[in-house]
Write a protein that binds this DNA or RNA. Sequence first.
DNA 1: TTGTAGGCGTTATCAA
DNA 2: TTGATAACGCCTACAA
Lengths: 357, 357
Amino acid sequence: MSMRRATISDVAREAGVSPSTASVVFSGKTPVSDATRRRVIDAAAALGYTGPDPRAASLRRGRSGIVGVVFEEHLGTAFLDPVKTLMMDGLADGVASLGAGLLLLRDHEPTGGGASLMSAPLDAAVLIGCSGLLRESLDTVRARGIPVVVIEGDAGDDVPRIDLDNREAQRQAASHVRALGHRAVVVVTLPARAGWDGGWLRDDTEILVDVTRERLAGAMDVFPDAAAYAAGASSIDEGFAAGRAVLADPERRPTAVIAQSDLLAAGVIRAAEEAGLRVPEDLSVTGFDGIVVDGLAPYELTTLVQPATEKGRAAGSAVAAMLEGGDAASIRFTCTFREGNTTAPAAAHVAGGLPRS
Amino acid sequence: MSMRRATISDVAREAGVSPSTASVVFSGKTPVSDATRRRVIDAAAALGYTGPDPRAASLRRGRSGIVGVVFEEHLGTAFLDPVKTLMMDGLADGVASLGAGLLLLRDHEPTGGGASLMSAPLDAAVLIGCSGLLRESLDTVRARGIPVVVIEGDAGDDVPRIDLDNREAQRQAASHVRALGHRAVVVVTLPARAGWDGGWLRDDTEILVDVTRERLAGAMDVFPDAAAYAAGASSIDEGFAAGRAVLADPERRPTAVIAQSDLLAAGVIRAAEEAGLRVPEDLSVTGFDGIVVDGLAPYELTTLVQPATEKGRAAGSAVAAMLEGGDAASIRFTCTFREGNTTAPAAAHVAGGLPRS
DNA sequence: TTGTAGGCGTTATCAA
DNA sequence: TTGATAACGCCTACAA
C-alpha cells in the first residue's frame, strides 16, 4: 500500500492526454474541450488525485501564495490586543484578494528550529510593531529580496509603511478635554519601551515606542504641563493599576485622564469607580482605538476611532501591489474623534494644580 | 538590473566547487572542509545569495515546513477568545520543534481567492472547533493525504483528537456548588450552535456544539432540574446579557450560576452587581477555563482551569508524530478545579424553587 | 571530502 | 484545442 501519490502525469496517462493538457484542466488558464476536461476529471477521481502539488506549483510559478506576518511577541500576547486582532482580519482579507494566506512568524524564534523569516517560503512579509528586532527582521527579509511592508514602525525610507496620525488625533481628543474646561489632566500612556513595568514618566525618560511618543506629544501639545504615567501594557488590568496610581492622592487628583488606549481607559474607569469617583461627573476619561471593550458597558468611551481593519487591508494591498511589480506608497490613516459618555465639563470646584512630573 | 537571483549553482561555480558541495555547506548534512566552506560562504556573500530557495527545497524534500490551522470563524473573532489564543501559543511551540510554522486558514474562504486547504503547501493540518464545516474541511485534508489533528471536535475514529474532560470537570464544579448548599442553580452555557442568539434552552433544543453539550451534561449530573440559558458567544458582554436574563425576576433568582466560560462568568458577575447583588454573598458564580479575565479584579473566579497551552502543544506534537510516520494517539486533558472568591455557602433564606425550563 | 547524475511535480512557451 | 519540451532550484544516493 505504500504506493506513491498520483501525479498529474499519471492522471494524464490515465485520461489519454498530455500532462500539459491535464495541467490546464486544473488551472483553467486555457480553454479545454468539455470532453477532454471530463476525461481528465474522471481520471483524477479514479486515481484519487486531488489537484496539483502546491510545492511543485510554487516552485514552477515562483510564488508560494504565502505572506508572512512577523510579530515581536508571543502570539498569545499579540492577539490579546483587539487592535491587532482586527488588523489581522483586514490583512487576511487584503492578501486573500491576492490568493495568499498568512504565515505566523515570531521574530525571535524561541526554539530555534521553527519556520523563520530565513527559511519560510514567503512571497512577501508584513512586519508589525517597532522594536529593535524589527530592524533585524527587516534586514533578513530584504536580503532575501522579498517585498515587505511595515505597520506602525519606523523602517527607513524605501519601505512602505502603514501609519496613523497619532499625534494629531491625540491632540484632537486633548483639545476636546480642554474645551470642557479641564486643566488638571494626566496622561496614561502605553509602555515606554519593551519590558517597561509601569510608572511615572520623567522628563528624561526615554520613550522608545513610537506610538507612545507620538500620542504623548499630541496630548502635550494641548497640555504642556501634564504629568504622564506609562502603563505596563495595553490592558484593562494595567490601566487599573495606572488609574490607582494616578488617583492615589486626593489632593492632586486630575479632573481628566487621557489614556492612550481604550483598554487603559477602561482600567482607569475601574480605578475611578473604586475610588468612589463618578465618570464622567468627577473624572473625564478618553481612550484611543475605538474598539469594543468587552465588559465596559454601559460606558461608551470618548475616544479616537482608528481604522484598524483598514490598516490591515491596506498592508495586504500594498503587498499585493509590490508583488505585481508596482511600487507601494506608504499610507497614513486618520483617526476619527468620537464623543461618548465618559467626558463631561470640569466641575469648577475641583480645578486645581497638578504636579509636574 | 533585472538579473535573476543567484542560485546555488551560481554560488558553486563562483566558489569553484560542485553544486552538491555548496548545497551541503548550507544544509550541514555532511562534513565539509573548512576551506571549502569558507569559499562557498564568501561566494554566496559576493553574489548576494541568502540561502536555498525554500520553494525548491520543499519540492525536493517533500516537506514545506508549514502546518495549517483551520478556524471556522473570522480570525478576529477567533482570537478574541483567550483560550484559543493560548492554544495558538502552545501550537506554535509544538510545531516549532518540528521546524514548522503556522498558516492561518479560514474554512469558509470569503473572497474565494485566498489560500485554502485545497491549495496551500501544507505538511499537516490542525482543525479547531466543531461546526459542520469541520466535516468538510476534514474531507478535503484527508483527500489530500495530509495528516490532521482535531482539537475539540468530533472527527471520527481514525483522526487523533485533543480533548478535555468537559463533563467530569463541570460536574466537579457543580458538586462544589451543591456542597455549599445551593439548590436554586442556573447554568449559563456557551452557544447551542453557530448563529445562536442567546436564550433559554428548552428540553427540545438541539445542542450542536459538543463543548456546550458536554459541560451542560456535567452540570445536569448534579442539578438535574437546573434551567439553562445559552449565551450568544463566549464574552463578557454576552455573559452580562445572559446574567440580566437569569436575574431578571427577583422571585425566581438562583443563588448560584454555573457559567461555561470565565468570560461568561465575568459578565454574570457584572449583571449581579447591576442588580444590586453581592458576589459571592448573594450569588455564587463559577466559570470555566481558568484564564485571566482582563478587568475582573478583585474577583478571582471559582473555575476549572484547562491546560489550554498544553492542548495546543499536544496538537503540535501529534502532528509531528504523524509526520514522522508514527501514529498519534488521541489525548484527553484534565481540568483542575480552582476555588476563588466567587462562590460561598448559600444563604438559607434565599433557597427557593426554580422553574424547570 | 567532493563530484556526478537524476528527478521532485508542475507549468510556461511555443509549435502543431 | 492539444502536445512536446524545457526549465523552476534544490537535494541525495552513489561513485570517486
